[in-house]
């Protein structure tokens, strides 16, 4: 089975570091992008199976990136990860077509379990 690729779009380097550590232990090929404006290009180049997407990013909002992802011919799965947990953000992400919406702070078991479930599901 080929190694599944995950792209973390997140501007907090320490969150990227802990998530990368956790996901690499699960045998995933993990990449990261901190710039909202460059996220779509990275997705098109890396073709990840899953994108972990922050909402508040420099230069571009996660919602805008999510819209672009949904317009791709074969879009990856998207887990939206945000400190903005308000109901309306969740509603907006759902309307645009997010696969899973999780709020920070998360538990390691929960997020790793959710990511593996999303990957196995797809």
């Amino acid at each position: 089975m080929p190694q599944l690729r995950v792209l973390i779009v997140e501007d907090e380097p320490n969150i990227v570091e802990s998530l990368t550590f956790l996901l690499e232990r699960e045998g995933l090929d993990v990449h990261a992008q901190s710039n909202g404006a460059a996220a779509l290009a990275s997705i098109q180049t890396l073709e990840p199976a899953l994108v972990i997407l922050d909402v508040m990013l420099p230069n571009r909002s996660g919602f805008d990136i999510l819209r672009d992802i949904r317009a791709l011919p074969s879009p990856p799965r998207v887990l939206m990860l945000t400190a903005k947990g308000q109901a309306r953000d969740r509603q907006m992400a759902t309307e645009i077509g997010v696969d899973l919406f999780m709020t920070k702070p998360f538990s390691n078991t929960e997020i790793v379990g959710s990511i593996l479930a999303l990957l196995n599901d797809g």
Partner: peptide, 22 residues
């Protein structure tokens, strides 16, 4: 401020959990 604090807490929680459980 809230966004920044939630990010800090996320990292502390996740990283300390790694140190404790792995």
């Amino acid at each position: 401020s809230l966004h920044s604090m939630l990010s800090n807490i996320t990292v502390i929680r996740s990283t300390s959990n790694i140190l404790k459980n792995i």
